[in-house]
Amino acid sequence: MSIGDIAARFGLATHVLRHWEAMGLLAPARIGGDRRRYGTEDLYRVAAILRAKEAGFGLDDVREMITASDPAERRAVLVRQRAELARRIAEAQVSLELIDCALDCEHEDLAGCPHFQAILAERISPAPPPHVRV
């Protein structure tokens, strides 16, 4: 498949694929001089890159994940990335609960709703102790 075929298949601009190639994320075969030819493995690699980006990973993180050749190194990278993703999912879940609470709230002033306040309580740092002057 040509670069145009792959780009169209994933809804990407061709310059995105060229950038990913320059970063070492893709390595399509070359034919007839400098024409790129993408195979089935490249399809899966593009899909993996897109899925990782959808999960919030930067391209450097993606490159580290997919280019690790040693299984132990790859596992270490994946364990670290999994922990980061789990953290972000937990944060998103709390945000979703806050939105659901707000949607169900009948109070005129949302900030005065005890249930809403309870959800937000963990984000409020305790007040610093008053400064004592001598």
Rank of each mutant, 00 (worst) to 15 (best):
P126G: 08
P114D: 05
D42I: 08
I89Q: 12
A118W: 08
L25R: 00
E106M: 07
R82Y: 12
T40F: 12
G33T: 04
A90Y: 06
R63E: 00
C101R: 10
Y44A: 15
F10I: 08
E91M: 08
R82F: 09
L78H: 12
L26M: 11
C105E: 00
V132P: 11
A29C: 11
G4D: 04
V46W: 02
R35M: 11
R45P: 07
L12I: 13
L43G: 08
A52M: 13
R123V: 12
A72L: 14
A86K: 04
I89K: 06
L59D: 00
V46S: 04
V132D: 09
S2T: 15
L78D: 03
E122S: 11
E21L: 06
S2G: 14
V134S: 14
R82I: 03
D104H: 10
L12Q: 07
A121I: 07
T67L: 09
R87P: 10
E73G: 11
R87N: 12
C101T: 11
L110P: 15
E54Y: 02
T67W: 00
A72Y: 07
C101S: 07
H107E: 11
P130F: 09
E54F: 07
D42H: 01
L96G: 05
A55F: 12
L96S: 13
E122T: 05
A127V: 13
D34V: 09
V16R: 02
D70H: 04
H107D: 11
G24S: 06
H15E: 15
G112P: 02
P28K: 01
L120A: 01
Y44K: 14
L26Q: 01
F57L: 00
G39K: 06
T67E: 08
L59M: 07
L78N: 05
G39S: 08
E54R: 13
R36D: 13
V94K: 15
P28F: 01
V79S: 02
T40H: 12
D61K: 00
A72D: 12
Y38L: 10
H107N: 07
A52K: 00
P129H: 13
H115K: 00
A83M: 10
A8E: 08
V46D: 02
R45D: 00
G112F: 12
S69Q: 12
G58E: 04
R63P: 00
V46G: 05
H107A: 14
R82A: 11
D42C: 04
V79F: 06
E91P: 10
V62G: 04
H19P: 09
A55T: 13
I89V: 08
G24H: 00
L26F: 07
G24M: 07
L26R: 01
H107L: 14
A90I: 03
R35S: 15
A121T: 02
F10C: 06
R63Y: 13
E64Q: 14
A68L: 09
R35H: 13
C105S: 12
I89H: 05
G11M: 14
R37Q: 07
A121P: 05
E122I: 09
E108P: 06
I6R: 12
P129V: 15
P114I: 06
V46M: 13
P114A: 09
P128Q: 09
L17H: 05
A118Q: 06
S125M: 12
M1F: 06
R36T: 01
T14S: 08
